[in-house]
Structures are given as structure tokens and as C-alpha cells.
Simulated assay, not measured.
Amino acid sequence: MVSGSGRVGSVVLAGGGTAGHVSPLLALADCLRRREPDVRIVALGTEEGLEARLVPARGYDLAVVPKVPMPRRPSAALLRLPTSLRRAVDAADDAIASADAKVVVGFGGYVSTPAYLAARRRGIPVVIHEQNARPGLANRLGSRFAAHVAVTFPGTPLRGATVTGMPLRREIALLDRPGRRAEALAHFGLDPQWPTVLVTGGSLGAQRINDAFRAAAATLRTEGVQVLHVTGAGKDFTVDDDDAGAPYVVVPYADRMELAYAAADIVVARSGANTVCELTAVGLPAAYVPLPVGNGEQRLNAQAVVDAGGGLLVEDADLTPGWVESTLVPLLRDASALAEMARVAASVGERDGDELLADLVVDAAGKG
């Protein structure tokens, strides 16, 4: 690992569109600011991505770059690509010049390719961070001339990569689950006498997961398993509220995910890179349900922790009320098995991904 001493001065961070790109971008920005309070940070993003709201809310400047999807097959969009890409590269170049950036850090996604190309044109060092076990198009391109390539998972096929793990929010990375459990249960109206399942499909929710647990709600309550179900915005539902059985709490989203993690004994979730890294960092067992569409990256994201014994892999089609009753409920009754899964999950987790990535950024800036 490179040395973390030195100053950055000014940095442009490129990544947006989804929480998978924006969350590590903000975690790195926070880390750089902790190290260097007067560092100048400008984030590149689009007008419609999550970054348009989250970056300014966190106190960082946002420069807008036109969205340039990369067509994967012949189409009219492919014919327009050179003009669209040139416009986006020019916008990224303007932001880099205005910030007097000493280094550009990209997290993949629509705005990263223009940022990488603009930085290369100016001779400014590039650092990339790839969140997923299977890299995206932008980071495959950027890795060819990057000063440093950071990856979340070992085995990610990018040449010369350094495994840093995922930059995480400090409230997650520093979470003391046992120490916060009582506070967490009270926050969500849960009862300390019951084992707790956290169910989440991410900010947008996951219909398969929502449907399976909604149908199994009565069984779970009767079996003495309480549930904190984060459905996704606009997808919440009502569970019969009677005095019989364990609580089943439904919320559309959770602003305090660190408390949701502190309350849980096990999690049922999709296996996006950020989710896998947060759960292993805090030592939470999980049943991972990879998205059944896409390039298979979610299965790869969860593979290492599942192979080690810190989680289960459940096919999307197999996540049914029957699975909840036959597999999940017995597991919640086996405290020793859950404790061992938690220990293994923590052993493959990384809590200092932000610091390790910041070391690479500082090094690149110093060599710029």
C-alpha cells in the first residue's frame, strides 16, 4: 500500500446515477476532508441522478455533465455518440480546470468516462474505484491509463488493481452493533425478546423480496420472529397489528441504516456491492438474493462471503414464503450458527476502505 502522507489540494470526483456510485464518492470526500479540512472537492454528476440531491446536501460542489449512455448495439444513439461524448468531455474539462484539480477520481457510471478522457487530455492523474466484482465499461476504459486502480473485491479483473474494499460512511464503518442494539430496537419499536430479521431491497425496493415477506408476515409473527422491513419508497404496506406474536415493522425507507443493522440478527437483501460491503464490515449474516437480470455482478459480489460461510445465496425464484418458513425461521432459532456466520462475515469485511482509497488519491496527486 502506498503512503497516505501529503496533501491533495484539489480533487474532482466523478460518479453518479445510483447509490452504488454516489455512496462511495461521498465516503471518500468525507475522508479527504477529515484529513485535509481545506481541500477543494468538486463532484461531477448529472441533473437527474441521486447525486443532484445528495452531493449538495453533504456540502460539496456539484458540476453537471451531460449524461452519455454507451450504446451496446448499433442504433441512432450510437451515431450521436461522438458528438454527445465530446460535449460531455468538454463539460468535465471545464470543471477540472475551474477546480484546478490535481487528481481525478472516478467511480464508474455515465460521468466517469468523460472525466477520465478530460483528465487524460490535461495530463492529470486518474484514480478509479470499481465497486463490483465485474467491472463496468467506464472503469475498464479508465484502468488503461489510471495512476491507481482500486477494487472492492479480490479477483476483480482489472490489471494492477489494489484491493481497498468499499469506502463506507463512518456511521456504518464505526458501528458497534452490540453496543447500539437496545437503542436501535427502541428506535424502530422492536422488542428485545425476539430475534430480528432486517429485510431490504435497497432504496428502490425489490418486489420479489417484498412479496415473499408480506405473504409470510403472519407465519413469522406466530413463530416468534420479528421483522424490520424496508420496502422502498412508495411500496410499504400494512400488517395486521394485534397483540399476538412478534412485531412486524414496515417502513418505506430508513434514514438511520446503522440502527437498522444494530437491531438485526440477520439480513435478507439484494447483493449490490455497497450492501455486501456494509454487512460484512459490521459483521451481519445475510441471505443474499442477487438480481436475476444484468451481467451477474450481484452474484459475484456475494460469492466470497457466501463461500466463507458468512451468508447464504438464494436464487430470486426460490425466495418464497415457503423458503422463509423452512430455511429462515429455523436459522433464527440457532443462535450459535448465527454467531458463527456473523464472525465469518466480519472476517471478510473491510471497515477502512475510505482511508485506503484516500492513500491512493494522495499518492497520485503527489506524483501528478
Rank of each mutant, 00 (worst) to 15 (best):
Ser5Pro: 06
Val11Leu: 07
Leu13Gln: 00
Thr18Glu: 13
Ala19Asn: 13
Leu26Phe: 05
Arg34Pro: 00
Arg34Gly: 04
Glu36Asp: 04
Pro37Trp: 09
Asp38Ile: 03
Val42Tyr: 12
Gly45Tyr: 11
Glu47Cys: 01
Gly49Phe: 10
Leu54Ser: 12
Ala57Cys: 01
Asp61His: 07
Asp61Thr: 13
Ala63His: 14
Val64Asn: 09
Pro71Met: 06
Ser75Lys: 07
Ala77Thr: 00
Leu79Val: 15
Arg80Glu: 12
Arg80His: 03
Thr83Tyr: 05
Thr83Leu: 13
Ser84Cys: 09
Ala88Trp: 02
Ala88Asn: 03
Asp94Glu: 15
Ser98Arg: 15
Ala99Lys: 03
Lys102Glu: 15
Val104Thr: 09
Gly108Ala: 08
Gly109Asp: 07
Tyr110Lys: 10
Ser112Lys: 04
Tyr116Asp: 08
Leu117Thr: 10
Gly123Glu: 05
Gly123Pro: 05
Gly123Ala: 04
Ile124Tyr: 00
His129Ile: 11
Glu130Arg: 02
Gly136Glu: 15
Leu137Glu: 08
Ala138Cys: 13
Arg140Phe: 06
Leu141Val: 15
Arg144Thr: 15
Ala147Cys: 04
Val149Trp: 02
Val149Tyr: 01
Val151Gly: 09
Thr152Glu: 09
Pro154His: 13
Gly155Tyr: 14
Gly160Met: 03
Thr162Trp: 07
Thr164Pro: 11
Met166Cys: 14
Asp176Met: 00
Arg177Trp: 01
Gly179Asp: 07
Glu183Ser: 14
Glu183Leu: 14
Ala184Asp: 00
His187Met: 09
Asp191Ile: 00
Pro195Val: 10
Leu198Asp: 02
Leu198Trp: 01
Ala206Lys: 08
Asn210Cys: 12
Asp211Lys: 05
Ala212Met: 05
Ala212Gly: 03
Phe213Gly: 10
Ala215Cys: 08
Ala218Val: 11
Thr219Met: 00
Glu223Gly: 06
Gly224Val: 09
His229Asn: 13
Gly232Leu: 14
Thr238His: 13
Val239Gly: 05
Ala246Met: 06
Tyr248Val: 13
Val250Glu: 11
Arg256Ile: 10
Arg256Met: 07
Glu258Ile: 10
Ala260Leu: 03
Ala262His: 08
Ala262Glu: 04
Ile266Ala: 14
Ile266Tyr: 03
Val267Glu: 08
Val276Ala: 01
Leu279Ile: 08
Leu279Ser: 02
Leu279Tyr: 05
Thr280Ile: 07
Thr280Tyr: 04
Pro285Ile: 09
Ala286Met: 12
Ala286Asp: 12
Val289Thr: 11
Val289Trp: 09
Gln303Ala: 15
Gln303Val: 11
Ala304His: 11
Leu313Ser: 14
Glu315Leu: 12
Asp318Pro: 04
Trp323Gln: 04
Ser326Met: 01
Leu328Pro: 03
Leu332Phe: 08
Asp334Arg: 14
Ala335Phe: 04
Ala339Arg: 15
Met341Thr: 00
Met341Asn: 02
Ala345Thr: 01
Gly349Trp: 00
Glu350Val: 15
Arg351Ala: 15
Gly353Ala: 10
Glu355His: 10
Leu356Ile: 04
Val361Lys: 12
Asp363Ser: 15
Asp363Pro: 10
Ala364Trp: 06
